[in-house]
């Protein structure tokens, strides 16, 4: 009992100490850049529980979900096609590697020039960054299917539909999820960066406006909100992965 309690309490200790240290170090309010934590939390409650949520949080989340959703559909679809055609995958690999290592934020000015600064631009730029980790991981996962499985499917004359949706995608799914996790981090970054450069709503826009008006408690509250949202999205994805890959863990034991 006590060891279980300790297991829960020990990891919580350091965050508590850090928050308390922040609380007391900022309480005096000697620097305008680091307003008292009490003031930040007060502002956080006023703004984000839940007065400004429809105006700023919803559009940001929409951009991420659309961008990530399109990336997953495109990435898994194209990845399965390329993964099953090994020679095509090898041939296009240099192009994919280039697109993967091109910093997507560097494409922001280009996207703004071509599409403007609407929601479509933000979804597009998220797809341009989040697609590659999913696509490349799907290709790897599909190419890594065990040859025995391929033989069994062939000798049982599995229909192509069943082959792809019941064998190929499930066996590649651990790697697909690893790709989605990387893409989620990219999506949050691109959502924020695209809102800094061109938006009139969203968390990034709110933080930038607060900074320009020197409303530092507001700016801090926005930054904390973004941190919480990034972490929460990660936890949600890990929960989905945990349930979707339950069979995989069992198979390994």
């Amino acid at each position: 009992m006590s060891s279980r309690l300790a297991r829960l309490l020990v990891p919580a200790l350091l965050p508590l100490i850090l928050i308390l240290a922040w609380w007391y170090a900022s309480a005096g309010g000697s620097s305008i850049f680091f307003p008292p934590l009490s003031q930040i939390l007060e502002r956080f409650q006023e703004l984000w529980l839940f007065a400004l949520v429809p105006e700023h949080v919803v559009p940001s989340l929409q951009s991420i979900l659309w961008g990530l959703g399109i990336s997953i559909v495109l990435g898994v679809g194209l990845g399965v096609l390329l993964g099953l055609n090994g020679y095509v995958a090898t041939a296009v690999n240099p192009v994919l590697q280039f697109l993967r290592y091109l910093p997507a934020v560097a494409l922001l000015p280009l996207a703004i020039q071509l599409i403007g600064i609407g929601q479509e631009m933000r979804v597009t730029i998220i797809v341009l960054g989040a697609l590659w980790p999913i696509l490349l991981n799907t290709i790897d996962g599909v190419r890594g299917i065990s040859p025995g499985l391929v033989d069994v499917a062939r000798s049982n004359r599995l229909r192509p539909f069943d082959w792809i949706f019941r064998v190929v995608i499930p066996s590649a799914s651990p790697q697909i999820f690893a790709g989605i996790r990387a893409s989620l981090a990219v999506s949050v970054i691109l959502m924020f960066a695209s809102e800094l450069l061109g938006a009139s709503r969203g968390i990034g826009y709110f933080i930038l406006e607060a900074q320009r008006q020197f409303s530092l408690p507001e700016m801090w509250s926005g930054m904390i909100l973004l941190g919480i949202i990034g972490y929460a999205l990660n936890v949600v994805l890990m929960a989905i992965e945990y349930f979707a890959l339950a069979w995989h863990r069992k198979a390994r034991i």
Partner: peptide
């Protein structure tokens, strides 16, 4: 065990979030 949760939280925060603050400083 003391630091694992803190590290997990901190590393999910994108560095670019700090842009507005770092620019001020």
């Amino acid at each position: 065990r003391l630091s694992v949760f803190t590290l997990d939280f901190l590393r999910t925060i994108p560095a670019l979030v700090l842009v507005p603050l770092v620019v001020l400083l």
